[in-house]
Nucleic acid binder design. Structure first.
Lengths: 245, 245
DNA sequence: GGCGGCTATTTGTCCGTACTATTTTTATTG
DNA sequence: CAATAAAAATAGTACGGACAAATAGCCGCC
């Protein structure tokens, strides 16, 4: 028996290539494809999931399916080991906690982090230093949900990354990290800690850590003065075999 | 409304950790889990698909589901589709070439791009615009090695990404992309093109494209004004091999 | 014990229906 | 004409049922 959803996927790909659904346009809706191709909506969805895994379409809930390529594009992968650290300071720096306090997230901070305002969080402000100097290299704000207050006594002494502490202590699993990089001016009080001139530029990296239920269990933002840091990644082209399906 | 399948996944993970389903053992069958957890088999399958993407279980048709880890392996993967574009402008912008010229790379530019000075390159300056406006959103400088001058007549009309043009025309394969992000001031002549105030901040993204012989065959840098752009990435925790639909 | 065949089991696939939350479009109002 | 409200459209989720195909274990048999 011939599986249907790969055939449906192939048919849609050929329609895209034939110009029926040009790049940038919306595909017909799932029920419409279901009627047109005479298969159930489940089968259409399985086919579209395959196209999505190929990177040929972008889907947005309640807004449609957009064509973004007419061929299976090469895929580049950046693999990041958690112990290998999310930034470039592997074991080259030590952490220095500057303050720990309970806060209610105000509107400005909530807008910047793209989180709901009004909730209570445990805020940790920290700096990083080279092992051979007292000079601060960068500043990080970390925000734990207030419900995880049990973490507080362990924060100072924990040597690893905070999200691993969270996973171990609170019995949860981080399944996704959303990261945003912006160019900003360094806030004055951070500039004083870091010894940078006023109006200096920095990379601001915000991260939100999510469980598989899409709950944000940790947020952080790091200020990297532009005279000391950049943000580098190497993407490698993945072997085509991984596409097999 | 609480989604069910992530909750089911979490419940199974905790059962595994609690020793109910030890590593190496078979999970109960899908219908059995469906009865036990009081959700439909579809929901069980969605949950197991998530565990599989985490690399915690192995599934074999008609042979069962085997537990192979009691924790999510600490690997985060960022998959970047090449035509699904390296930045956030999918099909939403059009390209406008501003100038094409042969240059010799001077010391300053070479230092910024971290490439050897003195070599000859073909430089292309371009802007990106929304489809419904003439206003320029961002600026990109692209540098081809001068030996690939055969590309020049095709640059204006080629609709896709330049590195794919390079691959097609010059019979080579890009196997690695090195990317660096920095916070900068927008240079004056670019600020004039983009209509941004003087001294405005921007993200500067430089990319170098390498073949498998570690030869740099393309370099680019993009200025993204900080009032219009950020750089977002989502890292997913999953087994690098698991990519199918 | 070893072999072969039968059977229940199990995942993968497919169908049709229903509901939800949000976006997009249309109609309405000031 | 702009702002607002209502309606339609859409992807995501969830349910329950059904069939296919190949495995694994069981039985009897030699």
């Amino acid at each position: 028996m011939a599986l249907r959803y790969p055939l449906v996927a192939e048919k849609i790909i050929q329609s895209i290539r034939a110009g029926e659904y040009p790049i940038g346009s919306l595909l017909p809706s799932e029920p419409e494809l279901s009627r047109k191709l005479k298969v159930s909506r489940s089968t259409v969805r399985a086919a579209l999931a395959q196209l999505q895994s190929f990177g040929m379409i972008e889907r947005r809930p309640r807004a449609g399916t957009r064509v973004c390529a007419d061929a299976v594009p090469p895929v580049y992968v950046h693999t990041m080991s958690a112990s290998g650290d999310l930034l470039n300071f592997g074991g080259h720096t030590r952490r220095q906690i500057q303050n720990v306090e309970n806060i209610v997230m105000d509107e400005d901070l909530a807008a910047w982090l793209e989180l709901p305002a009004g909730r209570r969080w445990l805020h940790v402000g920290q700096t990083r230093h080279p092992y051979d100097s007292e000079a601060a290299l960068c500043w990080t704000d970390v925000y734990f949900p207030a419900q995880y207050a049990e973490l507080r006594p362990r924060i100072e002494s924990y040597p690893g990354l905070f999200y691993t502490l969270l996973e171990q202590t609170c019995d949860l699993t981080v399944s996704e990290i959303a990261q945003k990089i912006r160019a900003v001016d360094i806030p004055d009080f951070i500039a004083r800690h870091l010894g940078t001139p006023d109006q200096a530029r920095a990379l601001n990296i915000t991260r939100k850590y999510y469980t598989n239920t899409k709950t944000c269990v940790l947020a952080s933002q790091t200020y990297l003065p532009s005279d000391r840091f950049d943000y580098s990644i190497v993407f490698s082209r993945q072997s085509p075999s991984a596409h097999g399906g």
